[in-house]
């Protein structure tokens, strides 16, 4: 496929040819952006209830790019929440970005300047992080930027569309569309799970424990954001102990 060839070319040229990596990022982000458009549409319906105009929704989504966090904040806004509560909810709902940011640092070239690292980190979303760690070789800034320019804009547009036209669609279509995001998550997780048994076990136990914690009366009061953080820490740590990666030297050739 063209995208994977683009990606290899871009990785071979590395930082010398930023335009090529920018293009590769945008190409790889096209399916993500289309999914975002659908998901952001249902997010827009929530934002509409919070009183956002289409322009406010576009800017808000473009700058934040966090599905779970935005959902939580928009629903709190409707209830005139305290600012501190907004900060706390944002922090918990997005704590996984802290872990993803830590993982992303391992994809940077040692001589990558600070401002480029910071801008790359700002691009992190679940999906853009997913394609960025899959990038062959060191990650140039232009790759996540290309992905964000395309997918982030579509995320913003979807939100604005949902605000202006959300109540036009029948509920059956809205609930079908709101599954788009999860379909994308599945598509990111399954290919590596197919290749690496340990990832498969990790994914399946993620499903199982998440479902258990959400359904058992004792733990069902835990908010989804906190549940995600606790399970991520616990399962990833267990997997790292039971099935650690091969030693350093092999890593260098990536």
């Amino acid at each position: 496929m063209m995208t994977s060839r683009e990606r290899n070319t871009a990785s071979a040229l590395r930082e010398r040819n930023g335009a090529s990596a920018l293009f590769a990022g945008a190409c790889d982000a096209l399916p993500i952006g289309l999914g975002y458009l659908a998901v952001a549409f249902s997010l827009g319906i929530t934002a509409r209830n919070a009183g956002l105009t289409p322009l406010a929704g576009f800017l808000s989504s473009l700058l934040t790019r966090a599905s779970a966090g935005e959902y939580a904040v928009y629903s709190l806004m409707g209830n005139c929440a305290a600012y501190l509560e907004i900060v706390a909810v944002c922090f918990i709902a997005n704590l996984r970005y802290l872990l993803m940011g830590a993982a992303l640092t391992q994809k940077f070239s040692p001589d990558m300047p600070e401002w480029k690292r910071i801008l790359s980190a700002c691009c992190i979303t679940d999906e853009i992080f997913g394609i960025s760690v899959a990038y062959k070789g060191y990650l140039p800034l232009s790759y996540p930027i290309g992905a964000t320019l395309l997918a982030g804009t579509m995320w913003g547009l979807g939100t604005a569309l949902g605000i202006s036209a959300g109540n036009v669609l029948p509920p059956s279509v809205v609930s079908a569309l709101s599954v788009a995001l999860y379909g994308m998550f599945i598509a990111i997780v399954i290919p590596p799970a197919k290749k690496d048994k340990a990832v498969l076990v990790v994914v399946v136990s993620g499903f199982l424990f998440s479902w258990m914690l959400a359904r058992i009366p004792l733990t069902s009061g835990i908010s989804p954001g906190v549940r995600i953080v606790i399970l991520t820490l616990a399962i990833a740590a267990a997997a790292a102990l039971i099935k650690p990666l091969p030693d350093e030297e092999k890593e260098e050739s990536v």
Partner: peptide, 14 residues
């Protein structure tokens, strides 16, 4: 190893 597994667990749990 921990950071390698993090994204997969997070996406599965979400």
């Amino acid at each position: 190893s921990f950071l390698y597994y993090v994204p997969y667990v997070t996406l599965a749990v979400m």
